[in-house]
Nucleic acid binder design. Structure first.
Lengths: 296, 296
DNA sequence: TTACTAGGCATAGAAAAACTAAGGCAAGTG
DNA sequence: CACTTGCCTTAGTTTTTCTATGCCTAGTAA
């Protein structure tokens, strides 16, 4: 009669994942969002882990939860463990498909800056399989499976990770050539429809201030949730768009858009690319380097 | 319209666990055994991970599997990640119940060496909650939830982890006092029933050799899968047992067993205690130290 | 005071995942 | 040549996980 171990099982892996997410993000709802499940599911997982441990990891309040003393002390361990697990899966992914490159980019950058450069990139790296995902927020690159990110950051963002500045961000009004005829002086801007991007609402105010333009009144404006839609509409002659130089350079050079006023204003932001740390390949860095040099 | 991420999900956690176990143990059946499921379940998990990666992690043969090149290179990552996950759960456990101490011990040691010392231990550490599990094999202490292990090891086992020698292992024949009357000379051993432990079958041969005893014939013997059962039977006068000194010392001192012959033979093994590395408490080390000094 | 809202809890039922059992196969072994 | 070992596959079942719903509490606004 061999003594069969009443084996000490690990608590359920999913329960640990739920705890880690909720503790890191500071809320069950936020964890649920990250894990793509309902808050109820996360709450159940966390309860399961608490039952396993026999102690509370969170203290519950009417509005949200806070980590208990125990939870506080354990968060670091679990965070590190899951970091490693993510690292392991990323390594598995890139070893299984070494030529696969995933780029995460701001939607506007993906469409107006990155997209024109893709043909050049593909020509330079014919073996690479480059996919692009448009994200509103920069992802955690070590955790989600992106090898390169391209986002707009304020110049001061001195993060530790290896960042590469691809271009500065400058703005100036742009519009279709036909509409430009109506704009002789900056003051004429008060008489045309303005096109805005909904996440860059302050662009116009910034430009007016820095270009020292004073208008008697602010005209009507329409906003778009995607900058590329606003650019399309500007090309169609719908109005005047506050153009980001790096994003409309192609339209300016092919004449589909023109800049009626020369005042170019820096926004204080830069287009920044980052590599995923821990990637053992050379390809991502090569692609990033090529990205600096590639013209649209 | 916010751009909702087509979130990059991790592969299923259980699939990773199955891969890690199968890769580490070198077989699906062995992994199934460790995970307490059927091999079919493990095979399915591994296939799921391979599908996620888009490449094979094992090459299948008729007799067993071997790691593919890819699997080989990924094993280390996953092993490290799960090591950390186990570490995190152990830390959670001991933080939630700092006075809980779990000891893993060989069944015979648990019953005959450890058990008599427990009262002394409890008196010395009244707050500690000491539980004991009897295991045939030493557990992976970093992974399974044991804080102290007590096993019989060959002297040479120079493992890196902090080991503490509690006692050397010596053997000599023992029996009930009544039976001892029949044993005047070692040669008389040929005429009595021998009691054996099924995992220490060679004890008798070793003792006969080292004690330079030659017998004309070997007598009948019965074996027990638990040494403590054999000890009981010896006390009952059922026969002569090859006694391990450290395990029968209490019976020898209270007279329920006697040693008819004085030849004590070392087996080359030692009772060894180990602490789980990474334990941030002092209590386990204190208990181990006390264990050295505690008398039965 | 009186809604109203946000965030979390509890429960039941539904959906999905995991597991088992059974049959099959291929290559060593006696 | 039969037997054993170790794995695969599939179908069906069990278990887990998730969602949906209603409820509760404490801030916030009217």
């Amino acid at each position: 009669m061999s003594v069969k171990p009443p084996r000490h099982r690990l608590p359920p892996l999913n329960a640990m994942r739920a705890f880690e997410a909720a503790a890191r993000l500071g809320g069950i709802s936020r964890a649920a969002d990250e894990l793509c499940v309902t808050p109820g599911a996360v709450a159940q997982h966390i309860k399961a882990l608490e039952d396993w441990a026999g102690a509370a990891l969170f203290s519950r309040h009417a509005r949200g939860v806070t980590l208990s003393d125990l939870g506080q002390r354990c968060l670091g361990d679990f965070e590190a463990a899951f970091d490693q697990l993510h690292m392991a899966t990323q390594n598995l992914r890139i070893r299984a498909a070494p030529n696969s490159i995933r780029i995460a980019a701001l939607p506007s950058l993906a469409q107006l800056w990155l997209s024109p450069r893709m043909p050049g990139l593909r020509a330079r790296f014919p073996d690479a399989r480059i996919s692009v995902a448009a994200l509103e927020q920069p992802p955690n690159m070590e955790r989600e499976g992106y090898d390169i990110s391209v986002f707009l950051e304020t110049n001061a963002d001195g993060s530790a990770s290896p960042a590469e500045v691809l271009a500065a961000d400058h703005i100036l009004p742009v519009c279709a050539p036909a509409l430009a005829a109506q704009l002789q002086h900056p003051a004429d801007l008060a008489d045309v429809l303005w096109l805005r991007d909904s996440i860059w609402e302050q662009d116009w105010a910034l430009w007016l201030e820095k270009a020292a333009v004073e208008l008697p009144n602010l005209p009507d404006s329409v906003s778009f949730s995607l900058y590329s839609l606003a650019v399309e509409e500007a090309c169609n002659g719908a109005g005047v768009l506050m153009g980001h130089k790096a994003l409309v350079e192609r339209h300016l050079s092919d004449g589909s858009l023109v800049a009626p006023f020369a005042d170019v204003v820096p926004t204080g932001k830069v287009i920044t690319a980052r590599l995923r740390s821990g990637d053992q390949r050379d390809l991502p860095a090569q692609i990033l380097a090529a990205l600096r040099l590639t013209r649209a």
